[in-house]
Amino acid sequence: MEIIKPFIQFLAVMFLSPLLLGVINRVKALFAGRRGQPLCQLYWDLYKLFMKTPVYSRTTTWVFKGGPVIAVSAVVAALAVLPFAGRQSFLAFEGDFIFLIYLLGLARFFTVLAALDTGSAFEGMGASREMQFAVFAEPAFFLGLAALSRVTGQTSLAGMFGTLTSATWAAAAPVLILLTASFFMVLLAENSRVPADDPNTHLELTMIHEVMVLDHSGPELAYILYGASLKLWLFGALIACMVLPRGGSWAADTAVFLLFMVAVAAAVGVVESVMARLRMIKVPYMLITAFAFSALALIFQMGR
């Protein structure tokens, strides 16, 4: 049983992650006074897209078709090292979070190249912005993980979240609160949510992530949407593992964890409903703020 648990967790993530976007949309609808889409809308969208025949631009090469495939595989491989409810996945090793960060980098690399492959000015614009924000988001995320490593004295995700207990929270609450805030900001930026980017905007000039995938259709678009939902889960799970130190049995932890993931999605929905998106030149400021939070947390922890 102990051996198959990580695989059950992995499959659960693969299956449940599209639900988070449904939750976000429901929360936003609630704020707007609408009924909103069904919770499982993304599943239907994915099914529909997989059944569709794609259209390819005449400019494109294999990069355009291969980009989404590689990107989604990178995110799925990243899930292999992602802890679930504070428990390790089937792959856990020293420095696995470095591997995770670089897998996300791989996904971004090919998404951006696939966008540039179309030769469209809009998609180039989105690609340029994506890389710009990554330059600010990655150090913030990295420094946050470094601070977490320093708090727990561990150098793997499973180790860090495994040793994180309520006693750690009692001792280092300010540091962990700062880190949670920083990770949440990185989550918003990396998953192109308001205030960094608006997934529902209808003007190409203001888009970031959505504009990069304008030309994708059919199975490729399905891969992209699915990859996005996995990525949201990934960042949400990091926050959840940090805020919820593992306590009881596997089943209890898992239940609390899943509830918390829904809560994270709801929080994203609330942020989207109550905030306007930032002006494009202000987005780096938000990420620099996240960086400052991570840096403060690390300095606090090192000054102890």
Binding site: A170, A171, A173, P174, I177, L178, L296, F300
Partner: peptide
């Protein structure tokens, strides 16, 4: 801890 939080 509360005092530290205030410092933060």
């Amino acid at each position: 801890t509360i005092a530290e939080l205030i410092i933060v």
